[in-house]
Design a protein around this nucleic acid. Structure first.
Lengths: 223, 223
DNA sequence: CAGGAGTATGACGGTTTCGTGACAACCCGA
DNA sequence: TCGGGTTGTCACGAAACCGTCATACTCCTG
């Protein structure tokens, strides 16, 4: 599933864009300022960024330049300004496309798909890093201090699930749901696989630094 | 200098686009019909194609699909139709951008630059190299240590698919979809062809260095 | 410090997954 | 029509993996 980061200060528009994109199957995160958006993107890069031009503080052009400095994520501007001058300035700053409000959601998603099709080849394999541990969901690969670790499918899915919600506690039940797609089942099963996972990715499985037990609640991956 | 191919049946518009783009420093060729444009492009591919939607004979959508079939040249639609439906259809057919007439030449050139910036990054696809293995999707050939390898069509498409997503795991289902265009089918089929491919491109088919299996997930081509 | 709830871990049998060789159907040029 | 090359299906063995269970350990509470 593709992720989109929406940077837009108007609450109503931000919400409606978010809902509409979620409806279309995108994973959406939103920010109200350029600063928040840039921080958000730096921490966990989105596949595509939607940005408004008129933002408080840093404006949309600064935001685009900031995003471009960090990488080459596809950027779509969504703005009320219809001046050629604004469009040219945004594209020159590094945007890939420019839509004028109000936007038709169908057009927006079609443009996102077109842009994604065009950009796909250039995108590096995204990775989630936690200290010396690196999880690459798409590559089906986990690196510990740069060395690949041989995980089984279940261990890998379990780790991915924890990594995607790093810092949050996930209950055994949640993990059963998401990793095993069991609606019910023995929660001990999770323990066993957590144990096996620790044998492979922890230096001292007895004193785990990455996969932490939260007694009575579940497990979490320490950032 | 970048070349642009303009496909537009209206003489006045074709001429004015041509002149304006030449003014901006582009090398411009023009065609009045989709058929002529496709032939022109096939003979000498342009860096970017501008296409009108309403054309006599083959229409703009057919033209876009034709261009896409031959390669992945950036395509910009310039049309009088402003319906969301038309925009979506053109983008789905394979266009990269869509402008509504009358177009501001400054906006057009800014969009061309943005598209070119994006495409160039994604375009170096004439050859994909992985250590001693070189895959040339366009030339339809594969070299191992400089020596051509005789692959069957299926093996070749399979390798191309893996090469275009090098480093990423592709599930058997994904490979069936993309290489065989099966929506369902026996996944063992993939195994068999992977095996045959390995016989030809791996030094030790039993310990493959290029086409790696990721147990429980699928296969990937090691970068 | 005793008890209990919660968690960790090692062992084991059944199951799944993968690689391979054999084979029949098919395509296509000679 | 023939024959070589290619393709998809099948079956089997080896290896890897999974879930269960029993047991041991840890932490908290009274």
């Amino acid at each position: 599933m593709a992720s989109v980061l929406v940077i837009e200060d108007d609450d109503r528009i931000r919400l409606s864009l978010t809902l509409a994109l979620e409806d279309e199957g995108y994973g959406v995160r939103a920010a109200a300022t350029a600063e928040d958006g840039l921080a958000e993107h730096r921490q966990d890069p989105a596949d595509t960024v939607l940005v408004d031009l008129m933002l408080p503080g840093l404006d949309g052009y600064d935001c685009i330049r900031g995003l471009r400095r960090d990488g080459d994520v596809p950027i779509v501007v969504v703005s009320a300004r219809s001046d050629t001058h604004d469009i040219v300035a945004a594209l020159e700053a590094g945007a890939d496309d420019y839509l004028i409000k109000p936007v038709a959601i169908k057009e927006l998603t079609a443009r996102l798909r077109a842009l994604r099709r065009r950009s796909r080849a250039a995108l590096p394999v995204p990775a989630l890093t936690f200290g010396d541990l690196e999880v690459r969901p798409l590559a089906g690969e986990v690196l510990l201090r740069g060395e690949p670790v041989a995980l089984t499918r279940t261990e890998f899915r379990l780790l991915c699930e924890l990594a995607e919600h790093a810092g949050q506690v996930l209950s055994r039940q949640q993990l059963l749901n998401r990793v095993w797609e069991y609606d019910f089942g023995d929660e001990r099963l999770v323990d066993v696989h957590i144990g096996r996972l620790r044998q492979k990715i922890e230096d001292e499985p007895g004193a785990p630094r990455h996969v932490v037990t939260v007694r009575g609640l579940g497990y979490k991956l320490h950032r």
